[in-house]
Every structure is written in structure tokens, then in C-alpha cells.
Design a binder for these strands. Structure first.
Lengths: 302, 302
DNA sequence: CGCTGATTTGAATTAGATCAACGATGGTGG
DNA sequence: CCACCATCGTTGATCTAATTCAAATCAGCG
């Protein structure tokens, strides 16, 4: 009821901004932000990012299945629903916009129009929300493929989260109206689309599940297992390496906690031999997934 | 590498804000932002202002809109996407199974086949998951209408949550295969279906947002506002009554906390005059939604 | 009217967020 | 190529708030 689009929102935002700016300046003047100078900023940002993580327990999900046990390279990588949708769209000759982003570039922010769907072609992106004023919570992490944006064919208003590129990224934007038109002409497309949406919903569910446990270590264990499942590469001996560069801050954002808490939990895991990779290593290495999943505290029964 | 978000995001945001800010303020912000030391603080503040507003709070969502401003009862209640889907399905003469449940009866549990979609006709149901020590977390609450079950047209395995009737309930089950067949024949159906799925995904997103704040009172305030919006009945003076019987335990399940904590927070709210309804009353009455939404800590509610 | 379950309240315990402080790292600009 | 500076990883002390544990009151129901 209060939050209308356009003018009203902006007005409200500006109001808040000014309010905060004043507070901020006052505090800065007092030297509160002085010492850690940027630390304060960083902290806030970090907090902001806390939200989402791709968590969730492993679930094969047919189409998302990793093609692990394959004799040869000959095997065709299974196509994700999002990819099928995109292929159909391209096949139909719809007008689509391809764009590239550099690391840390913002793809869209709350308030941007939600009149299109975004498809990830390559690179890694994350979507996140802000909460409690300045903490951020990552709501999704996608790599090389997948669909994002307001997942709906009707425009309900505007984006409600941020989308940011984590690496060099290529994406394709397609207008929802065009997709709707295509769906009308080719019903098959809707299957892929429904599946793509379902995939994302499943991820949301996993995220929810991962946010439930009270202990940070549980949530973190959950997250690590999920990451391993979605982005990991097994070496055959049960050891999985996650080849995404994630700082503790990033992990904290995904687990809705703080950098320090993550550090603590991580070193604990390392002490227990559950994970490897020295502090210097960028990639996270899971040594003992079995034990790790016990640390999830049962996580979510399914 | 990826982690330069701070700067980029902030910059972008600040830029956006500045567009709307009055000249003077804009200049001031820019000036400050130049100074490294303060930049962090200002950035953060800016973000806070920007972010906290766009989300959360009420979201119109076209089809979900409450028909408040209507001259007469004559107005036709807007049809929810789920209802449209069901109507289409009935119209097509698909075989569907209607079932009734008594309060507390279980509709399905994890492990049950997920080969069908469930439509709620009347009554109230909730879906929930279990986590840690057999605690349960309510993931959805539906009343009189809506779709539930594994929201996908392909069977991915089995149900992963519980669904239980809270009141006398009537539901309809439809096989996914049948729906898929229908979609192929009538593309229009897929629109309603996509919308129905989107609606549920939106709810999941809201749930995620509501789980982020650390404080129980924030989450609870969030929840209450959400319930008021979805199930409440306004009396014209700003007072909203939620006509669903929910024990503190139920509320606790929805905010991922404990009965006691909920009790504490509720009596606190009552003391502050934010909510009414003596302890005896079954229905929750929100007296001051304004104040309540301040207690959400900017959390993202809806 | 006496159960049983739900609601409150309070005390003790615990875990995470905060606040601080460094050393290490990495990227950038001079 | 080197130096600087912001960020990252880590650890410890302190503070706050929630979970736990325990107990008393209240409400609904047969």
C-alpha cells in the first residue's frame, strides 16, 4: 500500500538517504568511522551481502545432474532448463540483447524495470538483497548458465534485488513480452521455462533450509556441501574442490553471519580435518563430506 | 577479484540517488564521497537508504492485489493464478481427485511421490520442513486458494516437505502429466501456471528475507505484517485482524525460533500497544502497523 | 471439575555479534 | 618496480540476545 513505484519510492529513498547521510557525517565527524576508515564501509557492505547462499542439500534434480560417470568426453553435457529456454528463444529469432560485465559490475538494482529475463552465458553472478539497513544477503549464485531476474512473465513492478557479476560475465537479456509471445506460439518452450523457474525455486527452498539452524557452523557446513555439489570438482577420492573464489566475507553473506564467525568456524573445520586448503588457497577443498554433513545438525530432513 | 563490490555497488547506488537528489545535496554527497576516509561511511549510508526501501514492504503484484477500494460487493474478487490454472484444468475435463482433510491431518510427507500438483479449494494448509532436533519450520501458509506440492511439471523425485491441513480443508490433486498435456494443447494455461509458480516463489523470497534479521522481535514483526497483509481483515481504522488460529508455537515455527521467545516478543508488542487481543483471543489484532514495521529493523518484510 | 495443552515469566547458560588489533595479501599508481 | 592502502584472515575480549531449563498460571474440553 505505501510503496508505490516511481516517484513515491524515490522520494522515500531520498528521504532516507538524507537522513542517513546526516547521521553518517555526524558519526564520521566524531571519528567513529575514522579508525577503521574503510573497515566500517566494508563491514556494512559485508553485512549487506549476508543473505543468500546457494545452499541446500544435494538434490540431483534430473536435468541439473552432473555428468560424473562418463566413459568419454563424447557424452553430451546435459542441458539445463535455462539453457534450453535460451536456445528456443534464439531459435525463434527473438530480439535479444547480449551484454558483458566486468567483475563487481552491477547488472541491475532494486528499482530497475523487471520487464526482462536474464540468461547467464558465462561467468559467475550473484543476486543479493539488503536487510537491516546495510547487510547484504546473497540469494543466489549462478555459474555459466541459468536464468535470473524477476522470474515471472508479467511485470510486477521492478527488481527487488541486486545482481552483480563476480567474474567477467556475458549475459543475454530478453524481454518478457517476447518470451510470452513465444510461449504462445510454441508450448514446448513453456516446459523449459517452467523447469528453469522450478530450478530457481528449489534453490530458494534450499536457501531457506540452510538459514534455519541457529549455529553458524551448521549453516556453513550446509553451504559448503551445497557449493561442493553445485560448483565442486571431485578428484575421485572423495575430495571436492570448489573452484570459485569466495572470501570469508562472501561466505558470511551467504550464511547470514559475520566474517569473524565464518573464520572461526572455518578454522575449526580445518582443525578437524573436514576441509583443507591452507588459508592462502583460494579454493575451498572439502576433505570429508561425510563428517561435514554431520555438522549440519541434521540440516533439513527430506 | 570479484570482491570489489563495495566500491562499484555503492558508486552505482550513489549515482542513482544523486540523480534524484536536489542539486545541493548531491553536491554535498559527492564532495564527501571524495574524501577516502569518509567515503565508506557515506557509501554505506547511501546504500542503506537506497536498499532498505525498495524491497520488502508491500508489493502490489497485480493478481495478488487485495480489492480494497471497491464501491460495492459487486466487484468480482480477482482470481489468483492458481485458481485460473485450476479453472482451465477443470474446463479441459482432466481427471482430478478431490479430497478433504480434517484439522491436523497430513496431506503428504517427504518421500511421497511428487507426481501431482495440489490445489487448495477451501480451508487453510501449511507446508513445513524439519530441521535440527526435529524442529519444524513452516515454509508456507495458504488459505482458500493456491497451489502447492513440488512446483514443477517434471517429477524430480519425491516431496521434500510436509503439508498439513490446519482447518477442515478441501483440495484437488492433478497429475503433472495431465497438466503437461494440457499446457501443450493450450499455451494460455502456461501463463497462469507460470504466474502461480511465481507467486509461490515470491513467497519464498519473502520468507528468506524474513529469516535474515537476527532478532526474534524483528522476524516476528515481519511475520505479523505479512500475515496481516495476506490474511488480515481491516476494520477501516487501520486495525487489522488476522483470522487464523495460530498458537505461539505456530508463530515460532514460522520465525524459526522458540515458543518462549515468541511469547516474550508478543507480550512486549502488546505492552507497547502495537498489537491487541487479550491473551485469550485467538485472533491476532494489529493496532499499529506503522510502529510494527519499524520494529522490523528495516528487515525485508512484505 | 479435573485433565491436558497452551501461555507466561524467570533464572541460568550459551552462542553469536561487536569491537579491536595485526599480519598477510593483492592490486594500483607513481 | 616498489610502496601504499584497502581488504582478507584470524584471534581474543566484551556485550547482547536467544535458547534452555524449570515452574506457575490459564483456557478449553470431556
Amino acid at each position: 500500500m505505501p510503496r508505490r513505484k516511481g516517484g513515491a519510492v524515490m522520494e522515500h529513498l531520498v528521504e532516507r538517504l538524507i537522513q542517513f547521510l546526516c547521521q553518517g557525517m555526524a558519526r564520521a565527524a566524531k571519528g567513529i568511522y575514522r579508525r577503521p576508515a574503510l573497515a566500517g564501509g566494508v563491514y556494512l557492505l559485508a553485512l549487506l551481502g549476508v543473505l543468500s547462499s546457494p545452499f541446500g542439500r544435494s538434490r540431483p534434480a534430473a536435468h541439473t545432474v552432473r555428468y560424473e560417470a562418463e566413459g568419454e568426453h563424447s557424452a553430451v553435457p546435459p542441458e539445463s532448463p535455462a539453457t534450453s529456454v535460451l536456445r528456443e528463444i534464439e531459435g525463434a529469432g527473438l530480439r535479444l540483447i547480449e551484454r558483458s560485465f566486468d567483475p563487481a559490475e552491477t547488472i541491475y538494482t532494486p528499482g530497475d524495470p523487471d520487464d526482462r529475463l536474464y540468461f547467464l552465458l558465462s561467468g559467475t553472478i550473484r543476486t543479493y538483497k539488503m536487510y537491516q539497513n546495510l547487510k547484504e544477503a546473497t540469494t543466489a549464485l549462478l555459474k555459466d548458465e541459468g536464468i535470473f531476474g524477476a522470474l515471472d512473465l508479467v511485470e510486477t513492478g521492478s527488481q527487488e534485488e541486486f545482481a552483480e557479476a563476480l567474474t567477467k560475465t556475458r549475459i543475454v537479456e530478453v524481454r518478457k513480452a517476447a518470451v510470452a509471445w513465444l510461449v504462445k506460439r510454441k508450448p514446448e518452450v513453456s516446459f523449459a521455462l517452467l523447469s528453469a523457474f522450478s530450478d530457481r525455486r528449489r534453490m530458494s527452498d534450499d536457501l531457506i533450509a540452510s538459514l534455519l539452524p541457529r549455529e553458524v557452523s551448521s549453516r556453513l557446513a550446509n553451504l559448503l556441501l551445497n557449493l561442493a555439489e553445485r560448483f565442486g570438482e571431485e578428484d575421485g577420492t572423495g575430495v571436492v574442490a570448489v573452484n570459485i573464489r569466495l572470501s570469508h566475507q562472501d561466505l558470511a553473506n551467504m550464511v547470514a553471519s559475520t566474517r569473524e564467525a565464518v573464520s572461526k568456524a572455518m578454522s575449526e573445520f580445518r582443525r578437524e580435518g573436514l576441509i583443507g586448503g591452507g588459508r592462502t588457497t583460494r579454493t575451498i577443498v572439502l576433505l570429508d563430506r561425510e563428517a561435514l554433513s554431520e555438522r549440519t545438525d541434521g540440516g533439513v530432513s527430506r
